[in-house]
Design a protein around this nucleic acid. Structure first.
Lengths: 191, 191
DNA sequence: AAATTAAACTAACAATCGTTAGTTTTGTTA
DNA sequence: TAACAAAACTAACGATTGTTAGTTTAATTT
């Protein structure tokens, strides 16, 4: 029983490199070198480079899906749900920075089967998000704005949080948790 | 005197492929095939694959810089400046979709020299944006929110617009021009 | 028509890619 | 200590990469 097995080490190391340079610009030899071993040795632990990518991407995608499935049915109002979702994006950004970056940048390099799985998860997530917005509009909690634009705007910002986080200290994460919901939900213009 | 010279055709074709699959996943042979010629023939018109990338990225980056330099010194208030910037992002998204996608996704594959040029342009752009925000806060036109979070949130959304645009009709661009500034500047929560 | 230029071609290069086969080393269990 | 399993190794494969050299074709100018 190991604390972290070798396969996990490989995936974590690969994610770190993928984040910096992108999936296609990182070779198996690069990953191996970072671990102090030879490329061929990686294959004692993983099946292929593609398996590394799909493990990373689907891990993060499932984290988002799981949280959404937990929040969505709760009997809280739409604003509280949106705040919970934003918090979750911040949490995942902090806890799985490299994995998240890899999902954002390299999901299109998944092979046919894994790509289909990923897109299914992603579409379901956006559909739930859309329903929360529309519920909020119906209950007069939110402005009746174009839902697609709102979804796009908020999810794009949340997905890209890892870019912001990489440059900031952990102290500022608390600031982010406090201020980002305000910016996204209430805008910046004075009334 | 040709309407479009061969080099431009190559760059436009490359941008289209880079957008779909990313710089590293597109080979010179792929670009050539799309043009109906052989890979070696490309080198009658361009110096290297890297030159294609830098032409694309710096073209877009300079478009943004030029517009910012034109808007920034105008004597209009901060909200009007922000609206003009948002409009410009939408315009560039529509006019140079593939180039913009390539800039967003592949700038980190620029070689040392071009990367430095790109980052200089990008940092200057963000600095101007920051000053406009702070001017707006000082003049009590904008809420006194964390500037870094606001910059990040708005610029991230604007940079990713090409993703949204690719899926929508040109009719909806008018909707976007009308509604996106509202969403970004005023938020979505009812007062 | 001859000469020149532009733009395509074929062929090949050295390097690197993901991956496999077979072997040796290391660490654990019987 | 002998046996076994896990995890590293060396060596090599076929494919693909960006690019160059040299040649041929097509278009333009003299």
């Amino acid at each position: 029983m190991k604390i972290t097995d070798r396969k996990s080490e490989i995936i974590v190391t690969a994610a770190k490199l993928f984040k910096k340079r992108g999936y296609n610009a990182v070779s198996m030899r690069d990953i191996a070198q970072e671990l102090g071993i030879k490329a061929a040795s990686l294959y004692n632990h993983i099946k292929s480079k593609q398996e590394i990518l799909s493990d990373i991407v689907l891990n993060v995608a499932e984290s988002f899906t799981n949280h959404m499935e937990q929040i969505y049915p709760q009997s809280i109002n739409s604003i509280q749900k949106l705040e919970a979702i934003i918090q979750n994006h911040i949490d995942i950004t902090v806890q799985k920075t490299d994995f998240l970056a890899c999902m954002n940048n390299d999901w299109m390099h998944l092979d046919e089967e894994n790509l289909a799985t990923y897109l299914k998860l992603r579409n379901a997530y956006e559909a739930s998000f859309r329903k929360i917005l529309q519920e909020g509009i119906a209950k007069n909690e939110l402005e009746n704005q174009n839902s697609e634009i709102v979804i796009f705007s908020i999810l794009t910002t949340l997905r890209a949080l890892y870019l912001w986080y990489s440059k900031k200290s952990s102290v500022e994460v608390e600031v982010l948790k406090k201020d980002l919901p305000k910016t996204l939900l209430h805008g910046i213009v004075k009334n």
